[in-house]
Design a protein around this nucleic acid. Sequence first.
DNA 1: TAAGGTTCTGCAATCGTTTGCAGACGACAA
DNA 2: TTGTCGTCTGCAAACGATTGCAGAACCTTA
Lengths: 345, 345
Amino acid sequence: MTVHNSKPRVTLRDIARHVGVHTSTVSRVLNPGTRQMVTEEIAEKVTRASEELGYRPNAFAQSLKTNRSFTIGVMVPDLTNAAFALIIKGIDNVLEASGYSVIVANTDNSKERAKRNLDKFRERHVDGLVIATARRQDELVADCRADATPFVLTVRSTTDIGVSSVVSDEIIGGKMIISHLAQLGHKDIAYVAGPQFLSTGFERYQGYVQGLAQVGLEAKPDLFAEGEAFTEEAGRRAASKILATRQKFTAIVAGNDLMALGCYDELLANGLRCPKDISVVGFDDMPFAGHFNPPLTTVHTPLLDVGAEAARILLEQIEEPDVPPRNQKLRPELVVRASTGLAYG
Amino acid sequence: MTVHNSKPRVTLRDIARHVGVHTSTVSRVLNPGTRQMVTEEIAEKVTRASEELGYRPNAFAQSLKTNRSFTIGVMVPDLTNAAFALIIKGIDNVLEASGYSVIVANTDNSKERAKRNLDKFRERHVDGLVIATARRQDELVADCRADATPFVLTVRSTTDIGVSSVVSDEIIGGKMIISHLAQLGHKDIAYVAGPQFLSTGFERYQGYVQGLAQVGLEAKPDLFAEGEAFTEEAGRRAASKILATRQKFTAIVAGNDLMALGCYDELLANGLRCPKDISVVGFDDMPFAGHFNPPLTTVHTPLLDVGAEAARILLEQIEEPDVPPRNQKLRPELVVRASTGLAYG
DNA sequence: TAAGGTTCTGCAATCGTTTGCAGACGACAA
DNA sequence: TTGTCGTCTGCAAACGATTGCAGAACCTTA
């Protein structure tokens, strides 16, 4: 019981002194890769001493020497968005198992903040990066390419080729929705779009357009409105714009579930019932989408898997820097709930 | 244009050589605290060179020398739970501004994983810890106290005294609910409890009991059931248990919003309507609680502020290690929506 | 017994900073 | 001119690990 246990950090030297060997020997014992270089007898003594003294390697010193930090940076636009929380969880699950720690950066959709965070990642010498904030054209990504540290894009990708990414196949998702809606007899289908400078926003819309074409329908300009963000408010405003054209439609496809929620709000405010008057469908299948009123039909994006897969690819890229970049698209799934029904009229 | 730009990291020595001074001088220039030690003329040259060469300090080397990592560890039980995502965001917002990075650890409610993560935090020499996973009695916390690194508990606190914490005032929250329910004429109020080994679970229940006493009611054992976790499923099972007693009641207070959702499910399955037959109220006011069916009456916990305040206290504790621990309780707020109505009968 | 070959262990340099100490230099006063 | 004081800069030793190299110790074989 010391009076004021300030910080009796145990170092290799303490162990070395305790056992009567050199620090390099201790180091060798403690590193699995070099352990067989030293006599079993000594090795045992060292291990024991290390445990008794409660040795913890100093990560700084290790990293300084080896240039590996076992740390990876994750950049997300909004932690509060359940989708990104899921992504992080997926990433953390596989990284934790490999001894890596994740440093998160929340950019709140600010370019400056993203840049600042990227710099901080570099100072901290992260071994790799996963970026979930990319715009379709993104300087930040260009910046990363100039650098040698591996990174993979996730959820949102860019138009660049030659960079790894793992995302959901948004185009298929869009087509699934249209096919579902068409079966219910819908012909006039509005689109409340997410930002078109994001791959998610853009490709989901492409899926919608292609899906329409497949069933012999056409996208009408009046039935399209782009929100400035993937938020409930933006969704509501976009829906309101479409409503204002007084163009007839019986269904709305929203850029994501949040925007779909905004559509709910706007429909309600206009005395329209969902799905009786207007069907609504979203993207993501965020947690509790099944508890909304009405339960939301939406495209389930396998976010946990997307995150996990991104982490796996990153790990691979770290171990094997010369392996070519990979682009993975995971298949989404339509989950039909109560916000879509037969077209009226 | 080098052929294979491997990693031309710029160090102090490069700058020193470039300018023709010693590294120590460069170091002094680049550290605001010591910059006035060197002649303005040289200082200027150094700064310029540093910018031209694109110098980035090596965080490892710095930390190794100074024993400060400007890194703090955050431990949460479940990233996917919107409540904790909010907490992290609150923390990150204030920490980012002070130049700190946050390393997150997701324990998934596993003690082993928590311990592992704590060890990793120590290896990485985090300057501080914020812990959102504490049980009312928690060895992990005891473990932390033995150590000299500052930490603060958040969301969930322990029975220990002498450790800093910032939480929502759960007891008041519980009382608010009862007072609201009593005004609506409810007399038989069931409690679907969260785990009682967590301070949130425990204190919310205490608030319920005290609130009941204040309005001259009594807590009936039959109307209490404890879920094993703060989840929808656990909430549903607990609700089912209470229903099975066939005891009369007109309202349920749930341990949190997720459990309240579980109550919705069970009521629905039993042909009971909310709020017509049974009122339901939760805790947390998680995102989209207003979009549930029916919109959930719940106690709003100021999670963003809780996180931010925790970060602030931690920072204070890092700068000033001898300041006594602080326990902060933020005031919650009842938000009345559509899941509570007049008591029938 | 000596030569040759294998293990094993210690030495010392190194990673990129920070920082106490001391020397260099100029200025000023006596 | 000399002494003293201040200001600035360089030297070198850390911080705690890893690792190529060389030498010591042992074993084998002739």
